[in-house]
């Protein structure tokens, strides 16, 4: 792999790391593109072209993944708290988005998660991450 490509992927990796560490923060286009000094006029297209998913969907999926873990594995937080954590002001907007992604309501998922649907819904995340992973292994 050329140095240019390696550097480009390292910058994209920096963006993914930043998103992961700032799920509670404001992940708007200006902020996210600025992390690795990409022009905001191109970043949304560069991200989609690299990862096969829009930056908007990627962030939503990562937040939903965390929310689903909080629902299934911890009882400490209410669904409302989890919705707030995922960046939703209202629990019903969160419930709608959650159902759209995972085919279950948040409370339904908490009671008996359908892991197969869940896994399928998060497919784009795994695929996105593997785009950079592929380039860091040398067969």
């Amino acid at each position: 792999m050329t140095a240019a490509l390696h550097n480009y992927h390292a910058r994209m990796q920096r963006v993914l790391d930043y998103i992961e560490r700032h799920l509670d923060g404001d992940l708007d286009l200006d902020t996210v593109s600025g992390v690795a000094a990409f022009s905001k006029f191109h970043f949304h297209r560069q991200f989609s072209a690299t990862f096969g998913v829009s930056v908007h969907s990627y962030i939503q999926l990562i937040r939903m993944k965390r929310a689903s873990h909080q629902l299934a594995y911890t009882d400490a937080q209410s669904v409302t708290d989890i919705a707030m954590d995922a960046g939703y002001d209202a629990p019903d907007a969160f419930a709608r988005a959650f159902r759209q992604r995972f085919g279950q309501s948040p409370s339904g998922f908490r009671k008996s998660p359908d892991w197969e649907l869940w896994h399928a819904a998060l497919g784009p995340l795994d695929k996105a991450r593997s785009k950079l992973m592929q380039t860091t292994f040398y067969p």
Binding site: T2, A3, A4, L5, N7, Y8, H9, F38, S39, K40, F41, H42, R45, Q46, S48, A49, T50
Partner: peptide
């Protein structure tokens, strides 16, 4: 556009300028 963003730009070492495609 996808070719430019997916293949060409990452390998070129070039930096996109502040005006849209």
């Amino acid at each position: 556009a996808l070719y430019l963003y997916r293949q060409w730009l990452p390998a070129s070492g070039e930096e996109a300028r502040d005006f849209p495609i």
